[in-house]
Design a protein around this nucleic acid. Structure first.
Length: 783
RNA sequence: UGGGGGAUAGUUUAAUCGGCAGAACACCUGACUCUGGAUCAGGCAGUUGGGGUUCGAAUCCCUGUCCCCCAGCCA
């Protein structure tokens, strides 16, 4: 697959936004072209499919850009972390096919360094020891709507802070007595910046550092520092850390210099019919709703592995779901389809009968065994290899492949009907033996057609499915575990009042078939081998397999368009009436006025007067007048620009549409151009010196600090007109270069006109008049 | 209610100075088939609502709506 690809980044559309950032940075020579990412799990649980997305992203970026990806354990909380988890995580990452080389790190290895940084911040007056208890800290922190306020310990001297902090480390205080906090802003709208905690006291052995420490750094402090220590360039994490980026930047701005690591966030994976919370998964394990972290129903990597998923399929899945910042839920089918796509070409086909129905071939000699050659692969898979399967007088077929009273489109066996035995003969059902009391079908008595081997089903013989079967005398008994979704609802995190996610567990998530029969070639199958049981799905030999006792897990079913068509287990036709309810909704936009600007006018009679005047005297729309009179600065700017001589409409358009963009992060006073320049621009637009397209170019230059619009026009030669005959020629040339597109246009795809216009405009250096261009374009195209 | 982030077919996503709304999965049709699988061909279907700027808006401006995150001494 990707092995043959080069490690050179490919410039192409569809790069996810993080790779785009990395590409931009490498192009700009930031970090001297170096790329270093990291996957930073906390060893407090097993990895799941959501982590696979992150792993694939981080290691994938490193691969694509010829960089490295570190595996770093973010182990700063001694309460929950354990070596068992470290080992499972390493096993899973490796199994997924990623290699961290020598770059295995632990945040706990940096404790000394992190501590030194903490002292540095204290000495610089940027951190302090707070002795408030938890409740006190909460009180002083305020809420999302009310600002926090400084607590009584915030102004301790550097000496006092340092002394206290050192004594914290020395173990002089009990848990919770003090914490180290960054001196942020207690009134910050971002709650995370209200003096975030950097260190807490925890008298507890750590699984790696033992009893060396009794104070432990918080994530918000340890993480950026760890990144910086490892010279990470791009620190990628999930969306819920967006607010934490402020602390990340605060920390590194105080401790390091650019180029230092920067954090970027993407949306974590949500998969339908499963959960991704480590806490909840742990609950399922501890409360024994599942058999363990590697229960085949679990979305953990270990569970998927045991289920029979391949690393390739999981990587394919990660590739298909993409990376973005949109909160989304991925359909489970995407995962299932990935494993089917992978296994279709990899899993040999064999025959297994899950719910056996005995069939006696009455014209087949009782003591005869006919060994038939059966290919492991269907003809569309480019592989060879076969095994021998024995046919005898007594065989078993799938109960569901026989129907006493079949529907018209049934292509399997029914009384008096025929069916093909896969890799063998056609048989006809002559007699159905039923239980006289229950009416259950006990056995079928059939005759086989000895001349039908290898013959197509044409010649009057209606098309039948080729059904799987096993010889009664040779079949191997097997236990087959049929897994399906763990939860009954798509989103188990969304619970009804009074319920928990556990109330939505699917009681039928596993069905154990203990008396299945498989063909004898499977006798030597080893744990971990995968097969397709013809017409059933993909299966893996489970590690519970014992000599003489095969155990299979169903990885995924084969799609079945037949049962789908007949409305199998998921009927629910799309409700149509909803359409009506969700209909019109007469939202009349009155262009409601922004509160801020409204307030400004209420507080300033002059602004209010201008608001009226702009509409009545200048003829501006209420919406424009509103924007222009949001502040004195802007209104004055408008009037100064207007004084140059352009029309009110043009000046207003320029300000309300273009200047607004600059005003998002600048004040009027900080604008890189003067009102007079803007007025000049309006003037030359009104005068027809430049077209609207060119006007955008000129404005962009001005916004970049380019100076006078007239000078820009001259510099770029935008005032030179293109004469008609010249334009005709240019247009003819453009059209001649795109005969296909011209054909499409003439075939009715008139939406291409915009594309042609753009091409011509570019060819003329934006000097042509687009209206004229389109006029000529249409004439030439319709000629 | 403060701050941060997000919204393109049913789903996940693409569209690099404003210029062809493209793909995958799902679904539907047909072809083919010793798997009601696979494959192939075709089809359905979309820019969060309203207004503005422009020859031209998913993209720029204004204004609504909806969703997610933040008040752990977890990460």
């Amino acid at each position: 697959m990707s092995n043959s690809e080069t490690t050179t980044p490919v410039r192409r559309e569809g790069l996810d936004f993080i790779r785009e950032i990395v590409l931009r940075d490498t192009d700009a020579g930031r970090y001297a072209g170096r790329v270093a990412t990291r996957f930073p799990p906390e060893p407090n649980g097993y990895l799941h499919i959501g982590h696979a997305k992150s792993i694939a992203l981080n290691f994938g970026i490193a691969e694509d850009f010829g960089g490295v990806c570190h595996l770093r354990f973010d182990d700063t909380n001694p309460e929950t972390e354990d070596m068992e988890y470290v080992e499972s995580i390493m096993r899973d990452v490796r199994w997924l096919g990623y290699d961290w080389g020598d770059n295995l790190f632990f945040a706990s290895d940096y404790y000394d360094q992190i501590y030194e940084f903490a002292e540095q911040l204290i000495m610089e007056g940027k951190a302090y020891v707070d002795s408030l208890d938890e409740e006190g800290i909460r009180q002083y922190r305020g809420t999302v709507t009310t600002p926090g306020r400084p607590g009584p310990y915030r102004d301790r001297t550097v000496e006092e802070n340092l002394d206290l902090f050192r004594r914290m480390r020395a173990g002089e205080f009990p848990d919770g007595a003090h914490v180290l906090r960054a001196k942020g802003d207690l009134a910050a709208p971002n709650m995370k910046m209200r003096d975030p905690l950097l260190y807490r006291i925890r008298h507890m052995d750590h699984y790696r550092t033992g009893d060396k420490w009794c104070i432990y750094p918080m994530y918000d402090f340890a993480h950026p520092v760890s990144d910086a220590i490892e010279h990470i360039t791009h620190s990628v994490c999930t969306l819920e850390f967006e607010n934490n980026r402020a602390i990340y930047d605060w920390t590194l701005d105080n401790l390091y210099e650019e180029p230092r690591p920067h954090q970027y966030e993407f949306a974590r994976l949500n998969l339908d019919y499963t959960i991704m919370s480590k806490r909840k998964l742990l609950q399922l394990v501890e409360e024994e709703y599942v058999a363990g972290w590697d229960d085949p129903r679990m979305p953990t990597i270990a569970g998927l592995r045991r289920r029979g998923y391949t690393p390739e399929a999981i990587r394919l899945f990660c590739q298909r779901i993409g990376v973005d910042k949109t909160n989304s839920r991925v359909q489970i089918e995407v995962l299932e389809n990935a494993i089917r796509d992978d296994l279709n070409a990899r899993a040999p086909r064999v025959m297994a009968v899950l719910r056996p129905l005995k069939v006696t071939l009455t014209n087949f000699p009782a003591d005869k065994v006919e060994w038939l050659d059966a290919s492991y692969w269907p003809r569309d898979i480019d592989k060879t290899g076969s095994r021998q399967v024995p046919l005898t007088r007594e065989i078993y077929i799938e109960r569901s492949d026989f129907d006493v009273n079949p529907p018209a489109d049934f292509t399997r066996l029914s009384p008096g009907g025929e069916v093909r035995l896969r890799n063998a003969y056609f048989i006809r059902c002559d007699e159905v033996v039923t239980d006289p009391t229950s009416g259950d079908v006990l056995e079928l008595r059939c005759t086989y057609d000895p001349h039908s081997m290898g013959k197509p089903s044409t010649a009057g013989r209606r098309r039948s499915t080729a059904i799987q079967w096993v010889s009664a005398a040779h079949a191997l008994p097997a236990e087959v575990r049929l897994y399906s979704r763990l939860f009954t609802v798509a989103n188990p995190d969304e619970v009804e009042e009074g319920k928990t996610f556990k109330d939505y567990l699917n009681p039928q998530s596993v069905e154990v078939v203990s008396d299945a029969l498989v063909e004898p070639s499977l006798a030597a199958a080893n744990a971990g081998e995968r097969f397709q049981f013809l017409r059933h799905g993909y299966f893996i030999v489970d590690e519970d397999t014992q000599p003489g006792r095969l155990v299979f897990n169903r990885i995924v079913e084969l799609p079945d368009s037949y049962s789908g068509k007949r409305g199998g287990d998921d009927p629910a036709p799309k409700a149509e009436p909803a359409r009506q309810a969700a209909a019109p909704e007469p939202v009349e936009s009155i262009g409601s006025l922004s509160e801020g600007r409204e307030r400004a006018r209420q507080a300033d009679a002059e602004l209010a007067a201008r608001y009226t005047r702009y509409q009545e005297d200048l003829g501006l729309a209420a919406e424009q007048a509103d924007i222009l009179t949001g502040s004195r600065d802007l209104a004055d700017f408008f009037e100064t620009a207007l004084g140059v001589g352009g029309s009110a409409r043009t000046v207003a358009n320029l300000i309300t549409n273009d200047v607004q963009r600059e005003l998002k992060d600048k004040s009027v006073a900080e604008l890189p151009f003067t009102a007079t320049y803007l007025g000049e621009l309006a003037q030359i637009i009104d005068a027809g010196t430049i077209n609207s397209n060119a006007a955008k170019t000129v404005y962009a230059e001005m916004a970049a600090g380019g100076g006078s619009p007239k000078a820009i026009v001259t510099k770029l030669g935008l005032d030179q007109s293109v004469d008609a005959s010249e334009l005709e020629a240019i247009i003819a040339g453009v059209l001649a270069g795109m005969p296909d597109k011209v054909g499409e246009y003439r075939g009715g795809k008139t939406s291409l006109l915009g594309m042609f216009t753009g091409q011509v405009m570019r060819a003329t250096g934006n000097k042509a008049d687009p209206k004229q261009v389109q006029q000529i374009l249409k004439r030439q195209l319709e000629a």
